[in-house]
Design a binder for these strands. Structure first.
Lengths: 391, 391
DNA sequence: TTTGTAAGGAAGGTCTACTAACAAACGTGA
DNA sequence: TCACGTTTGTTAGTAGACCTTCCTTACAAA
């Protein structure tokens, strides 16, 4: 059986590049390796130059040069000689000066308050400030945000390397808020505006994505394939696949709150109206207000059953996602008294029942390890990642 | 409101790097830029060195050096002077020698036959060979595959730059078949074995992923966020997100065929037994045999209704995935007479009805633009990508 | 005291891409 | 017709980044 057919496409002009990346210069390699050294010091802690060389694959010479540059920048310091007595010349430890700089982070998740903080590089909250929105939206809300940032910058006790902001809504890679209906922001270049007015690098990202970043860097999220489901006023998600946040076509990835999970086919479960104008969205059963309404005035047993039934609906929605992406973990972020019980257990059991064993059985579905500061921590990671290449 | 709290994590040992990449050397930058030049010539077609410089951002000098190296390798050739008369010195076009080399590709999707071909670099089939499996599995099946590859290598009329293989099952990045039950392969280093025995670079990947690559490079798949659903004996999918194939925790991403879509809650739809040992999997209604069984002996109207009901089930399973990833496109690959009609329309309508307007309305759900050779073309892309960095 | 091991640094070499400058080839307009 | 501007592609020199090799320093174990 032999045949000669036409080309699948014209001889040229075939498709487009899978990964349309730009040119790479030697200096980019330098920046990458710099991040490699910094990341090692950040994640593993103080180490000798030789240690860093071994774990990064660079030579001791290169690492020495890099460390010297980082010391000159003030980001790294020598910490003296390692005490452990082994053969050979003792190592001089170097470490990242995680206390010498600070990060300003603001969480805009809440509809009523702007939640801000000054954090150290390892995510410890040093100063906390919050301010009431009092119904402000649009430019007044942006102005309030700016003044909060000013206040936090003034409150910082160390040089601030940048400002990170976790905002609801659709936000592109440049920190432009494409749309954030609850804040009345549409096509607002928030990061650029604030960078200009504050005089400090500002990074803005979606709050669910930010929370996922926080769980990832400071928490316990798995490396390969993880979804962080943020359950509050609404329901959102940040997804990390193959080591990178998923952005999506419209930078709207993770908007799983408005997937229909209740329709006429589901018995004993009437579809509820949703703020988005449709009915039966996941948010109508899984948001914190919805859960409180559903369990209000019930006995503990009834309440558990009600939460389990919501967990089942969540599991039905998660199963295709978990299967398609072969996720390792799903983390829930929200009030533990509502989520970390029958709801979580029922959701996990449902996902397992509805997916292939190889996928479902390896899956973990548990509470995130960060509390309500998760979005703040994630906003700090935005800055770490953007300014130092560490994440 | 001011407070000082504990660090979210110990001062060090916080989490792990988001993207654990290795060191980058200048030579890697060189390789990257080389791919950039080759990709431009491959996708856009012949161009002058100055053209390439403009579109890649590299200087003319750098591009000249790169092109000289590629000409020395035989991958690129000068094509003479551009005829269009404009001011300035006329450009000498250079082009990729897409006819000077060939690729051997094998598609193992079918349970009864190994489907092989020799292709040009632009995906045109030059020679076709197929061989019956006759029940072989395990090592005999691998031996048969090797002999088919030998035969195709001998049949090639130009130097072969590599062999690409599309296999069902779970396959890791090194071309090791973790498991492929239908072929009786478990933990088989297929790519390494064949590379050794054939003396040519061999790349192996999952058949659904491969088909997605084919649609992407030779077909019409969208850049940002695309899922190619392969519907044959089983149901699988390859997903491209943010310009990269999704692999997943166990390299099992896209295994959406065994998500439960039919259970007691769905009216008028009895769950069917699935080969995986569970019931109501997507595969039990959407695989080609299932579709043929379901429509056998029905009037056209009844058949359309039956296909539409399957489309609805597919849409219910797709909606959470489309929302979570903010996909731009879902492509169907399989028999058009079954898929490209009520089934597809019903699936699209269902997804739109069950997702946010911003996500669902922009979504395209259509047939893939490649035929049954899609997996072969994708296998060729494996080689292009692996050997030349072009994709 | 000797020997072996390890850390850190200095010198020199290679690779990469950039800038600057130039020759060749061609339209254009005086 | 001929000077002039434009575009192409090449040559020469520069800067950056990493490597290999060799050396000194410092310590433990025999």
């Amino acid at each position: 059986m032999t045949a000669t057919t036409q080309p699948l496409a014209a001889a040229h002009g075939v498709g487009r590049a899978l990964r349309p990346t730009g040119k790479v210069l030697p200096e980019h390699a330098r920046a990458h390796n710099r991040s490699l050294v910094l990341a090692h010091l950040f994640h593993i802690g103080p180490a000798s130059r030789a240690d860093i060389a071994r774990s990064t694959g660079l030579t001791r010479v290169t690492v020495s040069g890099m460390v010297a540059a980082l010391i000159a920048e003030g980001l790294v310091e020598e910490l003296g000689v390692r005490v452990e007595g082994k053969v050979g010349k003792p190592a001089t430890l170097v470490g990242m000066r995680t206390e010498a700089f600070q990060i300003v982070a603001v969480d805009l998740t809440d509809d009523t308050h702007l939640l801000g903080a000054v954090l150290t590089l390892v995510g410890a909250v040093v100063v906390r400030r919050s301010v009431a929105l009092e119904g402000r939206t649009g430019q007044p809300a942006a102005d309030l945000l700016e003044s909060l940032c000013q206040e936090l910058l003034a409150a910082a006790t160390r040089p601030v390397i940048g400002v990170g902001i976790a905002s609801p809504g659709v936000i592109d890679l440049d920190g432009r808020v494409v749309q954030a209906p609850n804040r009345g922001w549409y096509d607002l270049p928030l990061a650029a505006n604030l960078t200009e007015s504050l005089g400090v690098p500002v990074h803005v990202a979606n709050d669910a994505n930010t929370r996922a970043l926080g769980e990832f860097t400071y928490g316990s999220a798995a490396g390969s394939g993880c979804m962080v489901l943020t359950i509050g006023e609404g329901v959102g998600a940040g997804i990390v696949v193959d080591g990178a946040l998923v952005l999506g076509r419209h930078h709207a990835a993770g908007e799983i709150g408005h997937v229909t999970v209740v329709d006429g086919d589901v018995r004993d479960e009437p579809p509820l109206d949703c703020a988005c104008g449709r009915t039966g969205c996941l948010e109508t059963v899984l948001s914190v207000p919805a859960l409180r309404r559903r369990t209000a005035g019930l006995t503990p047993e009834e309440s558990d059953a009600a939460l389990a039934s919501v967990g089942r609906l969540l599991g039905i929605a998660l199963a295709p996602v978990v299967s398609a992406l072969d996720l390792a973990e799903v983390l829930l972020s929200g009030p533990p008294e509502l989520l970390d019980g029958p709801l979580r257990e029922s959701a996990l059991a449902t996902v397992r029942a509805r997916t292939m064993p190889v996928i479902g059985h390896g899956l973990a579905l548990r509470m995130g390890s960060l509390d309500e500061d998760g979005a703040l921590a994630g906003a700090a990671v935005l800055v770490l990642s953007g300014q130092l290449g560490v994440s």
